[in-house]
Nucleic acid binder design. Structure first.
Lengths: 196, 196, 196, 196
DNA sequence: GATGAATGAGTATTCATTCAT
DNA sequence: CATGAATGAATACTCATTCAT
């Protein structure tokens, strides 16, 4: 008889929000943002279309929430040693951590990559990505320098390209490029580039 | 008279086909496949919507034609030395050629990357890509081996990841990653990986 | 104890009812019936959507209640001298009273006029309006007659049209047609019509 | 076999445009703009929803076209003697013409009045209305003045209110206020106001 | 070969209304 | 009495595709 308490409502909202976001992440990642309809999401989540709009103002906002949350859940786990310089072990750990996060957030990454080339959608995305990535590039640069590289800028380019490509491979063709093996090879290659 | 007419018709057909494909490539690459409508293509090409269906059975088929043609125009220009082994100079030339083809077919690449992550669209795409890419991987592998690499498989992985990542960077953020500089750094890094 | 509680409930009910009606009148008048949503009303009133349905069975019934109440609050203030005949002073007072009621219930009038032309909505409305207006027309007719008009029917038509038009102007474009000036001019014109 | 000629297409477009506008005017006038759906229009016109968007970019644009066309078809028939001053006969003719136009464009007027009180819709409308009406007010003012009125401004207010009210009555309740009778009475009243 | 009017299934989104609490 | 999550039917609008000419 009595209305639900604020906590009860909060719990419901949180659960439904998570349900919607998880469902839509899955579909967006698998089929692409444009090719996924609100109806599909509702159907798969077992709720009505209208309910989605109770939580997100538009399809675009749902995507934005997904992106932001994705970035958060990926980047918050980084222990970026922004001030100091990485030791070799820390560097190795950093790369491994990257691969771990890739493993754990494969769908987020899939979504990110699929958005990367969709100009109209990627606006907010690109800026966010850049901002979040910048500290990592900086840290990498310092490390490369500290290792006595003769061309830190060039090596940074090569190494980040290699990492990006490796991630892309893992996302697109995980069976051809098994992550465990990739990981080692990439780490090795990094040192060869820096020291070579 | 009859053959002449046929010939003329053939010429018109070819020209119109090229017009449609060029126009749609431009739009697909710039705005994405889903966000581009047949009407837009027709308008930009200065023809009627109906005419497009005179040449392609569906929007999807137009895309397929674009992909196939894109692969052709990229890969046909490769002088793949499939039987023999590349010399260092040939390897360098091969990489440079890759960058040149990227430069000359930026829109095709943009389209390809944007499709890479859209499974439903990329079905035919992925298989084709694999088939076409296989000889190149083979050639690379042989070269790496011939250079005395201690871990050819690993180095191949690292190098192809690096190339893929470099291409992606060039396509997505050409102003941050200038192709000319990238090219040199990547080539250097390749040798460091192989010899290091 | 029981009656006390009932009384309190009754008081709460009444207060909430008034709150809902005032809020919805404001919104309906300002933005139109169709363009106003139950959610907006609830939000503006600081209550839940469900509560509105605790007092009114539907949006349409809320509107009907508003109309009826509007009529009541407008017409109940009239001291209609239905039996006798108005003196000149009483007639002038009657017109001024009309303008005063317009001033005091501008939103109601705004709503009424906006509904006047929406048949589906105005069904009950029109009948009510007619019933309520009839005595006023009668009274006016008697007065016009008593003033020696040669064509009381015609003058009644002209005068009521003028009043209606004046009210419409005041509601629609109050800054172009200032009520105070209108008032005098209309009263003058009435006598000119009757006596002319 | 050969495609239709430009004229053929033009004819089709014109016919369909007229069909859509006539149908939607009818429905908007009868049921109101908001309460009329595109589906209803399409159904009544015997065409598909999509076709309507082939001719009008949005429901709002369809309305705008209707308004503009309505104004045109009403005002273009006026022989506004803007420079000179109306004779009595010309004035009478002007009023009668007004009623005739009302008779001939009853639906347009119904639509106009129903829009007058819908703020969000009436934006473009109000400005247009004002612009188109201004010359008529001017002409009326000059005439009233020329007839020796002691208070031309006041009389103009009274007369235009009366005309507006009369029109409104004719539109809303044509059976209670028969236009033919109204017409005469209103004209008479005008002169009584001016001379009185 | 070429046109563009026409269709209809689909899209995102809104909103009055219900109902468990 | 009061809440707001949930629904579902409706809305405006889009677009690949067809087809008569």
């Amino acid at each position: 008889m009595a209305p639900r308490t604020t906590e009860q409502f909060g719990k419901i909202r949180l659960e439904k929000m998570v349900l919607i976001m998880e469902t839509s992440l899955e579909l967006f990642a698998e089929n692409g943002y444009h090719a996924t309809s609100i109806s599909q999401i509702a159907k798969k989540a077992g709720i009505s279309k209208g309910l989605i709009y109770n939580y997100f103002d538009s399809k675009k906002e749902l995507l934005d929430a997904l992106i932001t949350h994705g970035f958060d859940s990926i980047f918050q786990n980084f222990d970026l040693k922004e001030d100091g310089i990485l030791t070799k072990e820390e560097f190795i750990h950093f790369i491994k951590q990257n691969f771990n996060l890739l493993r754990d957030n494969l769908q987020h990454w899939k979504l990110f990559y699929s958005l990367l080339l969709q100009p109209q959608v990627a606006d907010s995305f690109a800026k966010d990505y850049e901002e979040r990535g910048a500290p990592m590039f900086q840290m990498l640069f310092k490390f490369i320098e500290s290792q006595g590289s003769k061309d830190p800028e060039g090596d940074l380019m090569a190494i980040s390209a290699m990492l990006e490509g490796a991630f892309l491979y893992c996302v697109v063709a995980p069976d051809i490029f098994p992550m465990e093996i990739m990981e080692d090879k990439i780490i090795n290659a990094c040192f060869k580039i820096i020291n070579g």
